[in-house]
């Protein structure tokens, strides 16, 4: 919050903290973009300040150059190449052959595209809200648990740095319907647990259960956001007679809605691209064959087309369809966010 900007409902005294908090929540980039736009006309002006700015911009570009070069060579280049390849028949061995929109036509008629997309959407619809709710619940507990906070913060983040392949193999064992720990625990309380990894009806719920294991990053974001909610708002609400739920609903939630929105977007994108755990469980070397249909997620199918069937052209078309789906979903989310996300200083 720069001086002179309207302070908003939160009050000026904590403006610095506020910015730091939201930067952590990933909102910082948007702010910087806005700031850059405001500054850009100054670049061409002959004023002394603009000379300093140019020097700063050069330094910035210099520092950014490794990333910029990396982006152009390793991301933008392959991205454009894949767009072109999606209009070819290409097996990575012989030269690509132009086939026009054939791959896209085939894609429209391929039942496995719909099946794998359905599986992925099912997973996303369950995973995203559940992992957000779980992370938020634990973040609230973490904020309350002052003394042991740092310890639990570390413990809860550890799963986020566990390699996904290890998670896949681990959960294959944990969720095994006959010998797995999850069902053994359920049996202790008298529940005959389902066959998580082998019953078609339970495979996707099992994958969702597994996915809740790695909520660490979301949790840390929420924890940071919660730290930034000013205490005086709670005080004011308390004086007005608000109970715990009302304080959560009308103070906490609006104040962290920026962080919630950010995690909603990035978790949705990550969910639609889910690959490693599912591939390990149902298609890798340690796999169980029962998940061939229910575990066929979109990116798994894409990988199969590219590297098992050597149909890179078709796989590229699949990748671009996924890109469009993600773009569409994100646009809808951004649209909806205008109604639900509260940005301080903007409204």
């Amino acid at each position: 919050m720069t001086p002179g900007t309207p302070a908003g409902r939160a009050g000026q005294h904590r403006a610095g903290q506020d910015r730091a908090g939201r930067d952590r929540a990933g909102q910082g980039r948007a702010r910087q973009d806005r700031a850059r736009h405001r500054r850009s006309p100054a670049w061409s002006s002959p004023a002394r300040r603009s000379a300093t700015r140019r020097a700063e911009a050069r330094a910035a570009l210099g520092f950014l150059s490794p990333w910029l070069v990396g982006f152009v060579v390793f991301t933008a280049g392959p991205l454009l190449a894949s767009l072109w390849l999606s209009f070819t028949s290409y097996d990575a061995i012989s030269e690509p052959r132009w086939v026009g929109a054939d791959n896209y036509r085939e894609l429209a008629a391929d039942p496995l595209v719909l099946k794998s997309l359905g599986n992925t959407v099912y997973y996303t619809v369950l995973h995203v809200p559940l992992s957000m709710a779980l992370a938020l619940g634990l973040a609230l507990l973490l904020v309350a648990a002052r003394r042991w906070g740092p310890f639990f913060r570390t413990v809860l983040y550890v799963p986020a740095v566990t390699p996904p392949v290890a998670v896949g193999v681990l959960f294959l064992l944990l969720l095994n319907g006959q010998t797995g720990l999850v069902n053994r625990a359920l049996r202790l309380v008298g529940i005959d647990g389902p066959q998580w990894t082998s019953d078609p009806a339970w495979i996707k719920p099992g994958i969702v259960l597994l996915s809740l294991w790695s909520f660490g990053t979301t949790l840390v974001i929420y924890y940071a956001a919660l730290q930034e909610v000013p205490g005086h708002l709670y005080e004011a609400a308390r004086l007005d007679g608000a109970n715990a739920w009302q304080r959560f609903r009308h103070v906490t939630l609006p104040m962290i809605s920026g962080a919630l929105f950010f995690t909603l977007v990035v978790n949705t994108i990550a969910s639609l691209q889910m690959f490693a755990e599912v591939y390990t469980m149902y298609f890798g070397t340690a796999h169980t064959s029962a998940g061939a249909e229910e575990g066929l997620f979109y990116v798994v199918y894409l990988f199969r087309q590219a590297f098992e069937f050597l149909d890179m052209g078709y796989a590229s078309a699949l990748a671009w369809l996924l890109f469009l789906v993600i773009l569409l979903v994100t646009l809808v989310q951004v649209r909806l966010s205008r109604r639900f996300v509260h940005y301080e200083g903007r409204r």
Binding site: N176, T197, S198, D199
Partner: peptide, 12 residues
Amino acid sequence: GGQGVVQAFRDG
């Protein structure tokens, strides 16, 4: 017992 049970049993 069906595919669910048999496959889980084999995996174990």
